Computed example of a mutant assay.
Amino acid sequence: MKKAILIFSLSIFCFLVSCSKEEPKNLPPTAVSLTFPTQNQLCINNSITFNWSDATDPEEEEIQYRIIIAKDRQLTNIVETRSLSASQLTLTLDKATAYYWQVIASDESNNESAPTVVNAFYTKGDASTNYAPFMADLKTPENNANINSGSVSLTWEASDVNTSDDLTYEVFFGENTTLTLLESAVTTKTYDVTVESGKTYSWQINVIDDKGAKSIGQIWSFTVN
Rank of each mutant, 00 (worst) to 15 (best):
S159Q: 14
T177R: 12
V171F: 07
G150H: 04
F173H: 00
T155K: 01
T177M: 13
F172V: 06
S164F: 11
E170H: 14
L179K: 04
T155G: 01
N176A: 15
T163E: 07
S149D: 12
E183D: 10
G150S: 08
T180E: 15
L167I: 03
T177E: 14
S164V: 15
S164N: 11
T180M: 10
D166M: 10
E170K: 15
S149H: 08
S159I: 06
S164G: 10
V171K: 03
L181G: 12
S151D: 11
Y169Q: 05
G174E: 08
N176H: 13
V161S: 00
D165Y: 00
V171N: 03
L167N: 07
S159M: 09
W156D: 02
T177F: 14
G150K: 07
T163Y: 08
S149F: 08
N148F: 10
S153Y: 10
V152K: 00
S159D: 13
A158S: 14
Y169G: 05
E157W: 05
A158T: 00
T163K: 15
L179M: 10
T163W: 02
E157T: 06
W156I: 02
A158I: 01
L181S: 14
V171D: 03
S153F: 11
T168N: 10
N148R: 13
W156P: 02
E170F: 12
G174R: 06
T177Y: 15
V171M: 08
I147F: 07
S151M: 10
F172M: 09
D165I: 00
S153I: 05
N176M: 08
L181Q: 11
L179N: 08
D165S: 11
L167V: 04
N148G: 14
W156N: 03
S151R: 09
T180D: 15
F172H: 09
L179F: 06
V161Y: 01
V161T: 05
F173V: 00
D160F: 01
D165G: 01
G174H: 11
T180A: 15
E157M: 03
S159G: 12
G150N: 10
E157D: 14
N148A: 14
F173G: 00
L181A: 06
S164K: 14
L167R: 01
A158H: 01
S149T: 11
T168V: 11
V152F: 00
E183N: 08
T180R: 10
F172W: 15
D165P: 00
Y169C: 03
T168P: 02
E170A: 14
N148D: 10
N148V: 11
S159V: 08
Y169P: 06
N162W: 01
V152N: 02
V152C: 02
T168F: 02
L167E: 04
S149W: 03
E175F: 06
V161P: 00
F173T: 02
D160K: 01
Y169W: 06
T180W: 07
T177I: 14
N148L: 10
D165N: 11
